[in-house]
Simulated scan of single mutants.
Amino acid sequence: MAPHDQHDRPLSELVRELSESQAPTITLGELIESLGASALAGLLLVFGLACTLPLPPGSTTVFGLPLVLLAPQLLLDSPGPWLPRRLRERPIATAALRRPFARMIPWLQRMEAVSRPRLGFVVDGPGRRLMGLICTLCALVLILPIPLGNMLPAATVSVFSLAMIQRDGVIAMAGYAFAAASIGALVLAANLIGAMLRTGLSALSLT
């Protein structure tokens, strides 16, 4: 498949092909090649959406680690994703990816249906770098074992990634709303944990 053909096709179609692949394994390098010109934002969207799904404990850490490597590259205006050679060539069992990829497809199709190129200045240049900074911070949150703390940061990464793929400034603005909600939720969680710790320490001091 030619690279320009891949670029012109919706990401949901490419993910469907990957979910239906009969190959026993796939490497991250092959995944990058299959995503074509939108590989960097495409990988961020795929791994971001994976972190929003109800998967077994620890899954967000597994899917969050690639985000920690990929998101900062938006700050450098990287034309394509860079990963260490060892990571690019590491095989991943396709059986482990089929279920999360299949569950992503309806969400991708819904998002693609409501997005289109508009307000391009919001997703270009400084706007792209700002989104990259926020995605990097969200990725760092995703690898932490915070109960129920992954949904909003993962949604933020997913929405920003879609905005970059579709060059949709309106979707990018929605991403900023998710980012603000993520900050609020994390501050609330930190306050609750702090209050619980203080209560526990007080109870211990009274015994």
Results as ranks from 00 to 15, higher is better:
G80E: 10
L119T: 14
R128L: 13
N150H: 13
P81V: 14
R85I: 06
M111L: 13
Q109R: 12
D77G: 09
A95C: 05
P84D: 15
L74S: 02
L140I: 09
V122C: 00
R128A: 15
R167M: 12
L83R: 13
L74W: 04
L144Y: 08
Y176I: 02
S115I: 15
A163N: 08
S115N: 12
V159F: 01
V157R: 10
P91C: 06
V123K: 04
L133C: 06
E89G: 06
A102C: 05
G149H: 02
R116I: 01
E112V: 00
E112S: 02
Q73H: 09
V141K: 05
I143M: 01
I146G: 03
C135N: 05
T136K: 01
R118N: 12
D77E: 11
M164I: 13
R86Q: 02
M104C: 08
Q166F: 05
A174L: 15
R103A: 05
L130K: 09
A93S: 12
A163K: 08
A93G: 06
P84C: 12
G127Q: 05
A96C: 08
V157M: 12
L130T: 10
C135E: 10
D124W: 07
A154K: 02
A102V: 03
L74F: 15
L140K: 06
M104E: 06
A95M: 13
V157A: 14
Y176N: 04
D124M: 11
P153Y: 12
P126S: 11
P79M: 04
P117L: 12
M164Q: 09
I92G: 02
T94H: 15
R85Q: 09
L75D: 05
L74E: 01
M151R: 10
A163R: 07
A96G: 11
P84N: 11
I92M: 08
R98I: 06
F121I: 07
R98K: 15
N150L: 03
V170Y: 09
M131A: 07
F160H: 01
T156F: 08
L148D: 02
P100G: 08
P91N: 10
I171D: 14
L75E: 02
R90C: 10
P100M: 04
G120F: 11
S115T: 14
M151F: 15
S78H: 09
